[in-house]
Amino acid sequence: MKFAVVAFPGSNCEMDLVYAIEDVVKEQAELVPSTATDLSDYSAVLLPGGFSYGDYLRSGAIAQLAPIMSAVKRFAAAGKPVLGICNGFQILTEARLLPGSLQRNQQSKFICKLADLVVTNNQTMFTTDYQTQQTIQLPIAHGDGNYYCDPTTLAELRKNNQIIFTYQNNPNGSVADIAGISNRQGNVLGMMPHPERAVEAILGSTSGRELFSSLVNSVRKRGLIHE
């Protein structure tokens, strides 16, 4: 199974993702430049963390207009898995593939630490290898990670089980302790914590491994694989 890892100018977690997939999950990963326009060779698309386009205007606001994003939208519309981590999550909200937005952390400082999360929905393509309500540990590293949506959107997210991860101790002021959400169909996931930085014990946590293994298993099971 082949993953596309999209690299925007200013992305900085793309190699961590490639490493997590190739060396830990033992699948193929390829870097795809943001100027590319075709993703038909891949079974899953990953948007990495970083500071695409220097966070100019707003985090993710410029990246959502990069040529690759039209292909990402087609990929998502076809029901195939798209995962945005940190800046990737910000890009997905700016591209309106996910509702709401990420605003400045409540305490206006950059937070970099291991966070306790609760898996609130283990029925998605990204979470089947976790237990529901399981507590996991993933690193967070963001200045604009405070998830915001209006009350109507929050009610929709709750009704459709689109809240996938929540913080046990809200670090940034996010509405409803939200750390990760999916789209209505469940094939697009955005999350501020970094699963790719938690795949080996030496990194402090291995909680991220199940996310990638869930994705691989789900893609194979659903026959979405493109070899």
Partner: peptide, 13 residues
């Protein structure tokens, strides 16, 4: 500008 309902920590600082 941020909407009034949105926290603006930069302005607060």
């Amino acid at each position: 500008n941020y909407k009034r309902s949105i926290l603006n920590p930069e302005a607060q600082a």
